[in-house]
Design a binder for these strands. Sequence first.
DNA 1: CCTCAACCTGACGTAAACGTGAGGTACGAG
DNA 2: CTCGTACCTCACGTTTACGTCAGGTTGAGG
Lengths: 118, 118
Amino acid sequence: MRIGQLARRSGVSVRALRYYEEQRLLESARTPGGQRDYPDEALERVQLIQDLFAAGLSSRTVVELLPCVSTGVATPAMLDQLITERDRIAARIQDLTRAKTKLGRVIENVTAANVARD
Amino acid sequence: MRIGQLARRSGVSVRALRYYEEQRLLESARTPGGQRDYPDEALERVQLIQDLFAAGLSSRTVVELLPCVSTGVATPAMLDQLITERDRIAARIQDLTRAKTKLGRVIENVTAANVARD
DNA sequence: CCTCAACCTGACGTAAACGTGAGGTACGAG
DNA sequence: CTCGTACCTCACGTTTACGTCAGGTTGAGG
């Protein structure tokens, strides 16, 4: 599969895929002419990368954790980092939940005020 | 209250407070000599700003929504935006929850493998 | 009056994850 | 063989929320 097709299937840009390779998050074979040629598994890989990015992990962290995420084998240090990241995500969820509640109350207030005025 | 004290109380940097003012998120009176002088309510204001930033809102969005968040009065457009932001946060929470679950499974796998090996 | 920490205004630096050309090459269709 | 589209490698631009000097001013204590 070439880069354009992988981009369309995964929903990320061509530029992003090249960036992932630059960051050693994603490998590619090359055609004799030098064009990237991806195996089918690359699609899942890209989706995994996106998930980890979406979780707020940096590309540096992702490149460190990807091996054990896909192989299931980890050093103690990697396990530590996994746990740290999971806890960071949990804390972030708490923050967002608080903010959401706050906004929800503002919306209720505003709505109530508008209804009262009508 | 001067800027250093507000910074210590709120836990944000002096630079950040000046930045908030630049972005029209925060006002200050000035002493005859030109130094910033904040009322006590500034502390809550700063904490509110931090909460909204933590929720992923940009300073542009915050400056648009702050009036109705503090006054409870909103135009229909502002209400729309409030709802949009709340939904965005909710979606983000979903993403993070999925990512956390994923990482949790990886941690379980790794732990199980290590225990088995011992 | 002197000092010195705290404050002031520019103004340039930073990091992350790409976006966006510029200028040239590869490949499938006809 | 030729066309057009997809691809290639630089390499600079973008955005946000500040960090970090530089060079000068203010204000409370002694």
